[in-house]
């Protein structure tokens, strides 16, 4: 290796430089929208979408303050609270569903096991928007689309289908040795006790991953919320509110506030996402080590 000819060494250096320059350019492309939005959330000269320069000239905190104080037209704090509550409940329900289904599919032998898995696979192939209209009619028939019942309807929307999303969790539970369950059952544990005392603790990293993913759903979803909430803006989630801010009648006064809202929503989601990645990698290391 030491006798590597000079021309090769030189060529290697050129490749290295080219690669790093390329990566810097790529990073800039990936970061531009974020830098742009953060910059414009502090823009001082105007509140509309149009800005004569790529980056603003004056910076101010007014957009953030306005977002929380000007609640007459668009109640952002309320929307934030709505989304938070809906996210908490749908996270609880869907995590329970996923855990229950995964445990039954991974650990218990029952006749409908295989048919259930095939059914879930088929259901997941339908475009979600196809049944959206029908779900709305159904919720309406149940009286859940009026007034303060809208949040319940949204929780149902976000968590009802959780029982088909078991693939990752079941795959993870499959890696836990069955001998552990058998040992516990010989010691007199019921299946419920093995579920609570053996399987759940061993699944911890995956449960955390599942909890956070389910919690993030309502923050990211937009279509379901839009159909269920319709014009009842006091029950809107953050995503609908932000969509509204960009509509013709509001965009002039609300674009910079939209940017501020985007920053405020993105920070917690980004942090949660980083946490899920950590736990996901931990989970991929296997349930029982050594």
């Amino acid at each position: 290796m030491a006798k590597e000819p000079k021309s090769m060494k030189k060529q290697k250096m050129i490749t290295d430089i080219a690669v790093h320059v390329f990566l810097v350019i790529v990073s800039i492309i990936w970061l531009i929208p974020f830098i742009w939005i953060i910059a414009h959330s502090f823009r001082g000269e105007s509140t509309g979408m149009y800005c004569a320069t790529f980056l603003p000239k004056e910076y101010t905190l007014d957009n953030y303050i306005g977002l929380f104080t000007d609640v007459a037209t668009m109640n952002f704090p309320k929307m934030f609270a709505n989304t938070f509550i809906i996210a908490c409940f749908s996270c609880l329900v869907s995590t329970f569903f996923v855990l229950a289904v995964s445990y039954c599919l991974s650990r218990v032998k029952w006749t409908m096991r295989k048919p259930y898995m095939n059914m879930a696979m088929v259901i997941n192939l339908f475009p979600a928007f196809m049944s959206m209209v029908a779900i709305y009619f159904l919720l309406k028939a149940m009286g859940l689309t009026e007034g303060n019942r809208i949040p319940i309807a949204l929780v149902i929307c976000f968590s009802a289908g959780a029982g088909t999303g078991f693939t990752v969790m079941k795959g993870y539970m499959d890696t836990i040795p069955k001998a552990l369950d058998e040992a516990a059952m010989i010691d007199g544990c019921t299946r419920w006790q093995t579920f609570c005392k053996i399987t759940l603790p061993l699944c911890k990293p995956m449960v955390v991953y599942q909890v956070i993913t389910a919690f993030m759903g309502p923050w990211m979803d937009f279509i379901f919320a839009k159909i269920i909430v319709r014009a009842e803006i006091q029950y809107a989630t953050v995503s609908i509110g932000m969509w509204k801010m960009l509509e013709m009648e509001y965009i002039g006064g609300w674009f910079t506030r939209f940017c501020a809202a985007a920053v405020l929503v993105s920070i917690p989601i980004a942090i949660l996402f980083m946490i899920t990645q950590k736990f996901y990698q931990e989970a991929m290391g296997g349930a029982v080590k050594g």
Partner: peptide
């Protein structure tokens, strides 16, 4: 235990996924 644990998720799927799909 599968009857207990599968019932709520499956009921929700039946009501809010399967019925709407058939309806559509």
């Amino acid at each position: 235990i599968h009857k207990l644990l599968m019932f709520p998720p499956f009921a929700m799927i039946a009501i809010f996924t399967m019925v709407p799909l058939v309806y559509m």
